[in-house]
Structures are given as C-alpha cells and as structure tokens.
Amino acid sequence: MKLHLIQRSPFSNSALKDCLNTIGENDSVLLMQDGTYSLNHPLLTDIKNPTYALLQDSSARGLTTPASTKAIEYDEFVMLCSQHKHVLSWY
C-alpha cells in the first residue's frame, strides 16, 4: 500500500507515466504542484486507484477537480502520508 506523490506535469515529464506503469492495485495517487496539470490526463482516467489532488495547487493554476479525484488540503495530505507504508515522490 503506497502513496504516490506526482509533482510534475505529465506533458513535460514522465513522472505520471512511470508511476502508473508500475502502480499496485492498493496504491493511491496524490497530484501536487505541477502534478495537478494531470487532472484531466487520459492516463489517470484509466486507473481505478484512489486519486487525490492538493486543492491549493490546483486552484492556484485555475484547474477544476473532476469528480473522480478528491480535492484535499494539507491536513489530509499529512494524514494520508501517515496512513501508508511507503510514500514515493515522482518528479
């Protein structure tokens, strides 16, 4: 059970692709910083894993969070980190 932090745009970096290529079925994905530009990326719509996005990072960029993704604040970010065995950053 892992939490994957996506910190780069999927249009300029392979962070999202590399992560999703190898993701486990019980893992979760959290989009943050430029990773929030992934919000409507087709790679994400294909997966069944729970997906989160840092609300302040997405709203800073003028992005809206689709229903399939849960918008969260830092409180929940920290909580998610404490609930997973491994937290991996992709950048």
Partner: peptide, 29 residues
C-alpha cells in the same frame, strides 16, 4: 515521526514552499 528531503531550488521551483507548508501542518497535527 516525519523527515523531509528538499531537492527543489528555492525560488525556481515550488517544492520548497510545499515542504514548508507540509512541515507546519505536521507540527500542527
């Protein structure tokens, strides 16, 4: 017990600001 690894360049990338906010939230909790 959390530790943070900051790789981001302070004024070229957002990562430093994210780390700071994460740190504050950790301590608040």
């Amino acid at each position: 017990k959390f530790s943070l690894l900051v790789l981001a360049s302070p004024y070229s990338q957002q990562g430093g600001l994210s780390a700071l906010q994460f740190a504050k939230t950790c301590l608040d909790q």
